[in-house]
């Protein structure tokens, strides 16, 4: 059953047709990889889904509900969590606080109760803290929980960003190249976390990734974008054999793999 659908999404920037009628379906519980050469429109698609861009045409549906054109914070509230290709952690906050910001949208305490650290605020802060600690344990970053995030190396930043997105308790998780800039070991860790998130938390994931090894290993389905169009979709094996894909993208890469 589809939890997230994008139908016939178009968007252009000036003369650049970044997306031209892209359809996407994410089923419950699955990991969908989106691949394609640089500039294919992967990130743009993610921005359209998460409400940062408003598509020129087309619809985005979450659990059948139309979320097209909602502002990004409302899309987040609807249940879409994401990470960024270029990492976007909050430098001035500690790891713990970064993750707790993730919980912002489902917290209820207002500024007055925060100011007084009153009943609700205190209870909620402790509850969120406990939840954040679970995520921290899960991501194995206990040792840096009080480190300012700005001081972390890339590998840990990506983990913190994942933790932050998880803290949103999203219905769908969008990961934009979560392994870019990581070494082999870190990539393996990250792949494990993505699988665990998917399996243990039952969270459907859209994963943009260039590393074909990883994509083939962990995704249930793969969709391929090129010049703003979907050129193929299917299981990893099907996609790997698709001549269009080989032509557009894999040809060079698969030799390298």
């Amino acid at each position: 059953m589809a939890i997230l659908e994008a139908r016939d999404v178009h968007i252009a920037f000036g003369g650049v047709q970044a997306l031209q009628g892209v359809d996407l379906t994410l089923n419950e519980g699955e990991i969908l990889a989106v691949i394609g050469p640089n500039g294919a429109g992967k990130t743009t698609l993610m921005n359209c889904i998460s409400g940062w861009y408003k598509p020129d045409k087309g619809r985005i549906l979450l659990e059948g509900r139309d979320i097209t054109g909602l502002p990004a914070d409302k899309v987040a509230a609807a249940g879409i969590g994401r990470t960024f290709q270029n990492t976007a952690i909050f430098h001035g906050l500690t790891v713990l606080e970064n993750i707790m910001v993730g919980a912002h949208l489902w917290m209820r305490s207002n500024f007055l109760s925060c100011m007084l650290y009153w009943n609700l605020a205190q209870k909620e802060e402790i509850e969120v803290r406990e939840f954040a600690e679970e995520i921290i344990d899960f991501l194995e970053i206990e040792h840096i929980r009080r480190t300012p995030a700005g001081a972390l190396p890339m590998g840990l930043r990506r983990r913190v960003e994942l933790g932050r997105a998880l803290a949103m308790r999203p219905k769908v998780l969008l990961l934009d190249e979560p392994m870019a800039g990581l070494n082999v070991e870190e990539k393996e860790d990250m792949a494990r976390f993505v699988l665990d998130v998917n399996e243990e938390w039952g969270l459907p994931v859209i994963l943009i990734e260039h590393d074909m090894g990883v994509v083939m290993d962990i995704s249930d389905r793969v969709m391929v974008l090129d010049y703003g169009r979907k050129i193929a979709e299917g299981t990893p094996d099907e996609v790997r054999q698709n001549p269009k894909v080989i032509n557009a993208y894999l040809g060079v890469q698969s030799e390298a793999v």
Partner: peptide
């Protein structure tokens, strides 16, 4: 306070997180 710093440090990310 966390929301404030989030906006200060990275307003795009803050918004995407629902702030």
């Amino acid at each position: 306070g966390r929301a404030w710093v989030a906006i200060r440090d990275h307003d795009v990310a803050a918004k995407i997180l629902g702030v």
